[in-house]
Design a protein around this nucleic acid. Sequence first.
DNA 1: AATGAATGAGACTTCATTCAT
DNA 2: TATGAATGAAGTCTCATTCAT
Lengths: 206, 206, 206, 206
Amino acid sequence: MSTAIKTKKDVVTEFRTSGILEAARKVFAEKGFHEATVDDIAEAAGVAKGTVYLYYESKREVYFAALKFGIAQMYSLLLEELNKVSTPEGKLKGLIAAKLAYFDENRDFFKIYYSELGNIPTTHPAGIDNEFKALYQEQARLVETILKEGARKKLIRNLRTEQTALAISDIIRGVVTHRILGWSKSKISQDVDFIFDLVWKGIAAQ
Amino acid sequence: MSTAIKTKKDVVTEFRTSGILEAARKVFAEKGFHEATVDDIAEAAGVAKGTVYLYYESKREVYFAALKFGIAQMYSLLLEELNKVSTPEGKLKGLIAAKLAYFDENRDFFKIYYSELGNIPTTHPAGIDNEFKALYQEQARLVETILKEGARKKLIRNLRTEQTALAISDIIRGVVTHRILGWSKSKISQDVDFIFDLVWKGIAAQ
Amino acid sequence: MSTAIKTKKDVVTEFRTSGILEAARKVFAEKGFHEATVDDIAEAAGVAKGTVYLYYESKREVYFAALKFGIAQMYSLLLEELNKVSTPEGKLKGLIAAKLAYFDENRDFFKIYYSELGNIPTTHPAGIDNEFKALYQEQARLVETILKEGARKKLIRNLRTEQTALAISDIIRGVVTHRILGWSKSKISQDVDFIFDLVWKGIAAQ
Amino acid sequence: MSTAIKTKKDVVTEFRTSGILEAARKVFAEKGFHEATVDDIAEAAGVAKGTVYLYYESKREVYFAALKFGIAQMYSLLLEELNKVSTPEGKLKGLIAAKLAYFDENRDFFKIYYSELGNIPTTHPAGIDNEFKALYQEQARLVETILKEGARKKLIRNLRTEQTALAISDIIRGVVTHRILGWSKSKISQDVDFIFDLVWKGIAAQ
DNA sequence: AATGAATGAGACTTCATTCAT
DNA sequence: TATGAATGAAGTCTCATTCAT
């Protein structure tokens, strides 16, 4: 009865759900939630329509599952990146770089992730709203942690860390957007330097 | 047929279109593009469904018209605000304040304006894409102009003005978002000060 | 604003609803509620599927409307028939004859009417249940009225009129069923005589 | 391969089919044919969906099997009851009492049994139709036998026994219906007396 | 024999768009 | 110009049936 043992059913379920989720991410990113059909997703996943409903109760649920899956994946990747460096400066720059790189690789996911924000207050039932809000703010909290550490080390001036963290996240998101829309042709490293420079000047002590 | 003289027809047309557009803004903001029905809009505008199609070819077109209408309105309001002050610092702060105030007043429009960005590349036919891109970047150009003037006056350090302008716009947009989602409970002036402080530190000379 | 004046809209509505109801009766009778599709009904009515939904909110609602329409029509026909005769005997016999004749003419409706009873308690939301129950019992009440009059005139012995009325209705329904299923090949008048004879012996005074 | 010896296979088959049939009766009665799913039945029977198809070719077949099973069971019970009394009067009253009691105990089955009649002519393939018709009429034949015996003993007047038997069955069925729908609150014995009284007066000699 | 995951046909319902009045 | 009834394409979801294990 150990939880470590996967039954065959578990394996199949994992195989199917990850296949469906991957397909969903792609399709939703391409067409947006409404234009995407369950048939599209099923086809992309190589299963029949009914199979999708075997694992998810509704189209919406597939959507949120894909969203959460992506966020979690990105989050763990960012954490990993942060552990490679020790100074606040390094961490901040690393985080910026990691995010830009991740979304460059996962443009489809960005589309979902991003457009979600715009829909939060009205579209979602309250429960999902809060769940997504938490997921979203967790990202900003990574930045906030860096800011606080920097403040403790007197590298960063005193400022409202929570808001600042959100603002920094917004800049990053903005740059990612411009990159994905093709408005920015710079190399990742250039954009990273740019953001970091702007931000660091804005928050550094003195 | 002089452009200066409005025929009765023109008057009616303007009356209808502005009524429809106003209704559309409200409805789209409340429900999002897909959930909103043409009937909703017609009803909100107090006309019959067919009448909407007399002035717009499709639901999409109504949507973009409402979007453009709002952007133009906001733009002229921002311009007005900028002309009240003369220093780059004052202009920047004024712009930030004006945008926050505008969206606080027009939350419905923000919903449309904002969620649009996320959909640009795939949903729109190329033509509209570019049109919207231009509209959107025009906003950033207001900031850019301020930056350039500041640079000339040596108040602002040398940096890639276009990108910086976009970044500043992103911070503003982020704060507006948090305000609208209810994540920020600060007064407008506090948020303005916060943004301005952060940004100005980040871009000031020295 | 007189209610006697039908607007054009009213005329169209009546035309459509009666067309749809007629089609619905036929289709539901042929296939039963579940096997019948809205498309079937629309096609039979010579309108598009969407048109059906213009006048009824759901397939269920079409069904109940058809049912009620038929019951009401039959009821008024029975009333008319009853007014032609004056004695309880004559009324009872007339009622039996009228019902048998009506269902002989409207076999399709009988199918709906009949199969409905079997579904009452579970399928219907409470409200409709009661509405249908009332409609159904109204039929039995016609018989009950006759019985009471007969009792007053000492033609009929004392018995629980409500139950007896229901029992008589059941006999009639049974014979109709057998006729419709083709189990009875008798002429209507023969079956009428048979029912009347059996019943009258059962209820007559002495 | 003697018919007297049950192989292990037979035992299992009987065990499975009776389990499935019992479950089917319950589920079909609760939800009706269409609302009931094969999954519902399988779950109620404690087997997997596929197992149901091992013993029956289709959902319909399960349905008819459950119906036949119930009718046969009831029939043998009625026979038993009839053998306890000897006079036609006693037999008739006994039959009425037994049927009312049986359906009071087996309300679920009545739902199936009853609603079936309404669907016979169109829904069923001709074969099943006839099979069911035979089963159904077998019930009435029980009554007919009593009537004939009564006629021979001059207790009952001369009348078309087949039709009369059907009519009596209809009255019984009607009362059962009212009881099950909750329209009758009488005790069984009261309803038995009522039916018997009405019928006997209707059919007695003189 | 038993399972239950997978299938995919098909149902209901919505709604953008048309067009006769 | 304005209307709103009519259309029918298209989407979500269900579930009887199959079949590999």
